[in-house]
Design a binder for these strands. Structure first.
Lengths: 337, 337
DNA sequence: CTGTTAGCGCCTTCAC
DNA sequence: GTGAAGGCGCTAACAG
């Protein structure tokens, strides 16, 4: 089945290719009604659809952007993607999503593939380990926006959570509930800014409030070892409260709780950064610090589109979003002591 | 910043464009080591990357497929997408995902846009309302695979759940647990095969087992009205057990349960088609009939890739997947009466 | 072994 | 108002 091309339409309508092209691109300022109608009819009759690949080659723009996420398993990631897609959809851009799986090599491969595919811009949750690549994009003025993380010293716009504020909200709430011995659980992945920011904010707060805790209270392990580590911690120390660093960590904690048949918040108060779909449904309902994922995704999409359209310059701006504290009852009842 | 093109490499390496092309495409059967090395060096030095758009135009293949899902909010959908992406990834294909949101017009627009973009094939969760479009694709031998639904009379391969078996598993389990008055809740969306299959299977089973229920026990409403409808039903009838037709429906039921502070399975036994992430975590753990989403997505991806490569013909085959029954305790304890 | 040539389907001056 | 011509970057015969 041969595809019908612009030439076919032209022949059928008895005009030249270029006239059809004009018509397609609505440049019929000076086109006679007659030819316009003839072309329209021919297009309908032949069921003609322009080949976007050919157009892209000529125009050097594909109306497609790429999104490279670090880990698609986080609910946060999914929500950001959805918001980006909605934003781009509204501007008639397509989105290709790739999951780098926290692996710098994968990230590199995807960045290259997407650029080879001539995407007009990139939204990346950067691993941070491909600095030269990032630099090269900056150097070539390729539109790019970072999400969730930023890379020091690179003039690339980032959309991020105020991570230290998130941790402050968490710790201060727990303190208000009367908890002193607070443990922080995170999943260790190389060097990742949000985790690092959260951990250091936690350390700072612990010092500041003179919490009676030690380094054992900060657990940073592979996901599949977290349940064991938590168990060890609980054996060694009296823990009042546990902060799950993100939703995947929370799952591990909940699994542990279920398997040991613990009662929350009696066994320990629980609070997570990242809200989950069943936060209100769980028994007890889960207190959480939520990231405004949709807003962040929307912002990232808008920023990228603006850059693509040349409306804004590349710059080292960081758009910080405030977390939202959601008190439910897993973090303890009443006002504490 | 001008992009470096094949021509630049050719000039730099003192060969012709075509030689470079040969090199790029690893057709150096008869290429001298010398030129090979020269080209390689030039490519590195100039940091050359082939423009895939140009290649696509020439080769009439983009190594990209489109996926149009009916509703991205279902966990099932997400899992299928992920499996498709993994499968395609392994074959060096890219995936563009679009969410038709159960709206035939959106579906139509996406199908057209993706085809205009020259995707090599399409995986669609069809709304069923764009028959002419589907037919036209069949007619043009455009590679396509349906997921979750099939359209009668069209020679298009489908990957589906054995919906009636799912319902049988559900009902028979509940009967075994001693429940007789079983209600089925689903969210009404136009004509959709799986829902319809599930409903008629339910009706058949009700008849077959002489269940003491009437048409009120089948509730098919918009999601946001389900809680009210369930409430009405519970006022009017003595319900032993509730089957949630999918995960979104389950959410409504759980919200209802939470807001009314009901005890499951005492208030009624609960079972859903589609397992959820917190199925084991919920109290009580949720009995479910799970769809093998990953396997189905993988199969769909494989089928589409095979069609694209011309390895298999288009045909009206339906790949049926068996649901997996997961007994937990929301459906009642013990063996019943 | 390598270069020449001719497009892929579309867009865009620039004549007529 | 419309058409002719050239070219986007790459591939694929076919010469040489």
């Amino acid at each position: 089945m041969k595809k019908t091309t612009m030439m076919d339409v032209a022949t059928h309508a008895n005009v030249s290719k270029s006239t059809v092209s004009q018509y397609i691109n609505k440049r019929y300022d000076f086109m006679s009604e007659a030819t316009k109608n003839r072309i329209k009819a021919s297009i309908q009759e032949l069921n003609y659809r322009p080949n976007i690949v050919a157009r892209s080659l000529k125009q050097k723009t594909t109306y497609t952007i790429g999104v490279i996420v670090s880990n698609i398993l986080h609910a946060f990631t999914t929500q950001v993607i959805r918001a980006i897609e909605d934003t781009c959809q509204a501007a008639d851009f397509h989105v290709i999503v790739c999951n780098a799986d926290d692996q710098p090599e994968k990230e590199k491969r995807y960045i290259q593939m997407l650029r080879d595919k001539q995407v007009d811009g990139l939204i990346v949750f950067p691993t941070g380990e491909n600095r030269e690549l990032y630099e090269e994009m900056v150097h070539n003025q390729f539109p790019i926006v970072f999400v969730d993380r930023k890379i020091e010293g690179l003039p690339i716009t980032s959309v991020m959570l105020e991570n230290s504020m998130a941790m402050e909200m968490a710790v201060e709430h727990l303190l208000k509930k009367g908890h002193k011995k607070i443990a922080l659980l995170t999943n260790a992945i190389k060097f990742v800014l949000p985790r690092q920011e959260r951990v250091s904010a936690f350390e700072k707060l612990a010092k500041q409030h003179l919490l009676p805790i030690n380094e054992r209270y900060i657990v940073s392990k592979e996901l599949n070892q977290l349940q064991n580590s938590l168990h060890e911690l609980l054996q060694l120390e009296e823990v009042d409260a546990v902060i799950a660093g993100n939703d995947l960590v929370l799952f591990e904690v909940l699994n542990y709780i279920t398997s040991r048949q613990l009662q929350i918040p009696d066994a320990f108060a629980l609070l997570s950064i990242d809200d989950v779909s069943f936060g209100t449904l769980y028994n007890p309902p889960l207190t959480a610090v939520r990231q405004p994922a949709s807003e962040m995704g929307k912002k990232a999409g808008e920023l990228l589109l603006a850059k693509i359209k040349g409306e804004i310059e590349e710059e080292q701006t960081t758009y910080l979003f405030e977390p939202i504290f959601i008190e439910r009852s897993s973090s303890g009842r009443g006002e504490g002591i």
